[in-house]
């Protein structure tokens, strides 16, 4: 008989800018080697995953990480006392830090996680990427974090136009000359503060990779994908798995050198001369992870096994040419569900 695990999952916001929670749950429900009871953890009362059928068995609201890790852990402790959680999978960028620093507390409650270390998390920040590239021997486009406009003159001979002018967290503009850099610098620094990152623009095709590292340097799963259509928010609407061996090599190399622990998504630009530049490293499973499941690699299932201390075998292959197409769907709820969740924080 298959064992049954209770798994708590965040990121139930399956909206037009989706979180990975619902696809992760879907993958876990299809796990070959265990059954699951899913505890959805929601920050907001209209996250679609709360109301979707065959998704979460039970949903609890949790306080935002901005309230403080103590408050969040108290809530998790309460939920755990009712549900006896085996594994917790956080899926939001903004909550990762808090869960990472609470790893030990969770473990004491008997809840396993499988997250990157704080060091792994910190050193791949956008403004740190060039250092990261140097340290691990990866191709990163020339980029420099600048804190004031005069710095642009100091680095003008180090790159060629056009360049991307990027904010610390969000926003990116393409600039063709110093005047535009100045304009975008001002625009971004007002909104997101400094530093502003100047990154060499690389012409080519953007490809993405979802991967899972076991924390010892081994790659358990890796599937590359190209977005076929993106929404005006820059999110994938459709995508297709690729058979590019180089992408797999790059990912395995990165995981080996950094001893990456947990899920990750790489954003890579492939140039017309077949060079590969890493432009971003996201320290979690992406929302399109179900494509990897459909192509033969149930990465969330393997992640749960790693979290439980098992040693899952690395996936050896995946189907090339598998596609995903996102769609929207109106499900019907009732004010009474909303009432219950809003007033009791449970549904």
């Amino acid at each position: 008989m298959k064992p049954k695990y209770t798994i708590a999952v965040t990121g139930l916001n399956n909206t037009d800018n989706p979180g990975p929670g619902v696809p992760v749950i879907r993958a876990l429900r299809e796990a070959k080697e265990f059954d699951v009871r899913i505890i959805g953890l929601a920050y907001e009362n209209l996250e679609p995953g709360i109301y979707m059928e065959n998704t979460a068995d039970k949903v609890y609201q949790i306080p935002y990480p901005s309230t403080g890790s103590d408050e969040l852990m108290q809530r998790i402790e309460y939920i755990n006392s009712k549900e006896d959680i085996d594994v917790l999978i956080p899926n939001f960028d903004a909550e990762l830090f808090t869960f990472m620093m609470s790893e030990r507390k969770l473990k004491e409650m008997g809840i396993q996680t499988f997250l990157p270390t704080i060091k792994q998390f910190e050193e791949r920040h956008k403004s740190e990427l060039p250092e990261y590239g140097k340290k691990y021997g990866l191709d990163i486009p020339f980029s420099k974090a600048i804190t004031n406009l005069s710095d642009i003159n100091n680095i003008q001979y180090e790159f060629e136009y056009p360049v991307l002018v990027k904010g610390k967290f969000y926003d990116a503009y393409l600039a063709y000359n110093p005047a535009q850099v100045t304009e975008f610098f001002n625009k971004i620094s007002v909104k997101w503060g400094v530093p502003v990152i100047i990154q060499q623009f690389i012409r080519g095709t953007e490809v993405n990779v979802v991967a899972l590292g076991d924390g010892k340097g081994n790659t358990i799963g890796v599937v590359p994908m190209r977005k076929q259509y993106i929404t005006d928010k820059g999110k994938a609407w459709g995508g297709i798995t690729l058979g590019d061996e180089n992408l797999i090599k790059i990912t395995k190399n990165l995981i080996e050198k950094t001893k990456w622990r947990g899920g990750m998504e790489l954003e890579i630009i492939k140039t017309h001369t077949d060079k590969y530049y890493i432009i971003e490293i996201n320290p979690r499973i992406p929302a399109w992870v179900y494509l990897a499941v459909g192509a033969g690699q149930n990465i969330p299932e393997a992640l749960v096994k790693l979290a439980l201390g098992e040693k899952p075998e690395a996936f050896k292959s995946y189907d090339i040419g598998k596609m995903f197409i996102r769609y929207s769907y109106d499900l019907i709820g009732d004010i009474s569900q909303f009432e219950k969740l809003s007033l009791t924080g449970e549904l």
Binding site: Y43, E44, Q61, P63, Y64, S66, T67, E71, R75
Partner: peptide, 8 residues
């Protein structure tokens, strides 16, 4: 999005 999250 309510920065404060659920009632604590």
């Amino acid at each position: 999005t309510d920065k404060f999250g659920m009632r604590a």
